[in-house]
Write a protein that binds this DNA or RNA. Sequence first.
DNA 1: CACCAGATCTTCT
DNA 2: GAAGATCTGGTGG
Length: 184
Amino acid sequence: MDIADFDRPAATVAAALIGHVLLVEGVGGTIVETEAYDRTDPASHSFAGPTRRNASMFGPPGRAYVYRSYGLHWCLNLVCESGSAVLLRALAPSAGLDTMRARRGLDDPRRLCAGPGRLAQALGIDASHDGAALDRAPFAWGPPEGPVAVAATTRIGITKAAETPWRFLLAGSPYVSRPLPRTR
DNA sequence: CACCAGATCTTCT
DNA sequence: GAAGATCTGGTGG
């Protein structure tokens, strides 16, 4: 991902990010699950306009938006077009496994980064990263290594706009927080 | 595996 | 003062 690529609709960026490698201080892996949120979306923190918490969502694209979830967890978003962002929900861990295991207090690689709170904990993300530029340290990026099969489905944990298919997955990945719903 | 309660706190109404 | 873009550990099939 080039920094300029973030200045597009969140759903476009969310799909394009699948398969890229994200590292924070050299720790991370391949992005396998994302969700998009934008200004016109009732489920988005930005829906009601700028506030103290969501200020980063209305700042320049290509930066981080970090918020506290349920008073317990940090969640990492990547800011796109003004008022929109992509929530990182899961990685396939590939770098700094020992660091992630220590931060998470468990071994199972499938559970190290499967979920927004878990991912942020494994990467050492907290409020100090809010507003940080994504094209310099501690962040580093790598392109997909081959063809990427992206699947789209509904988002998780929301009550408004629950039917909007803005959750993107690396098809078949065992590292997602929840599998693609069964079709029939 | 499914369901549920509890933890914990910032933000906005 | 209520509501969360969640996670974990418990219980019961």
